[in-house]
């Protein structure tokens, strides 16, 4: 190879190397742009997802299942404590034994046989709770309404449970006056009713 050719080739190689360097810088800027674009896209996408989630939550409204689970507990047996004597009404004791043991099917049958009992007004609360526990919601509603209408000692308690039943059934408009009423009267659930009512925007 003569000297002239060597010079020509050297200059070609140097110029090609310089051009390649220029392209490598261009490639790096494309990669950086792409990365920036991906980040921007990901940020925008996460904002859209968050907005969609919030909108869906707003559209879906409160999680009534969760609220019911948080506030519901079976009302304790205050009528027939287990240490009753032999003279006690054994049918009543048996009904509450089922109720206290969580055997709601048998409790319902036992309570229904006590319709002639003096305590029937109040027993309807427990009957309603047992029915609600077994998802016999329509029967439970009737039992609670009967307990409220009877104006017995358990009427205010039954109001609270009927309110909770409507929460369970996702009918806040029916639950609202019941929760408001429970919160306004003197009963063990007044505090819980205020809290639940606040969560659902029932109070101004």
């Amino acid at each position: 190879m003569d000297e002239e050719s060597k010079i020509s080739i050297s200059i070609h190689l140097a110029e090609r190397a310089a051009a390649k360097k220029q392209l490598q810088a261009l490639e790096a800027s494309i990669a950086a742009k792409k990365k920036r674009y991906i980040w921007q896209w990901a940020t925008a996408a996460s904002i859209v997802v968050a907005a969609l989630f919030t909108t869906l939550q707003l559209l879906r409204g409160p999680d009534y299942d969760a609220l019911f689970s948080a506030y519901y507990e079976p009302y304790p047996n205050t009528i027939a404590p287990v240490e009753r004597t032999a003279n006690s009404d054994t049918r009543l004791s048996q009904a509450f034994a089922y109720y206290d043991g969580g055997d709601y099917e048998k409790a319902i049958q036992a309570f229904q046989q006590l319709q002639q009992s003096d305590q029937w007004k109040d027993l309807q609360l427990y009957l309603g709770i047992a029915q609600m526990a077994l998802n016999q919601n329509e029967e439970a509603r009737k039992s609670f309404e009967a307990a409220i209408a009877a104006k017995g000692e358990m009427a205010s308690i039954a109001t609270w449970y009927l309110g909770l039943l409507y929460i369970k059934l996702e009918q806040p408009e029916k639950a609202k006056p019941l929760i408001q009423s429970t919160a306004a009267t003197d009963n063990p659930f007044a505090g819980n009713a205020k809290k639940l009512g606040n969560e659902l925007g029932f109070f101004p």
Binding site: M1, K6, I7, I9, S10, I11, H12, L13, A14, E15
Partner: peptide, 28 residues
């Protein structure tokens, strides 16, 4: 692979802009 080509390339890159331009236009 030739050593002299490598050296020519190296020193061409180190030349002043004026010379580089003339050689670039003529050879490249």
């Amino acid at each position: 692979k030739e050593e002299q080509v490598g050296l020519l390339q190296l020193y061409y890159e180190k030349m002043g802009e004026h010379c580089k331009k003339i050689l670039q236009l003529f050879y490249y």
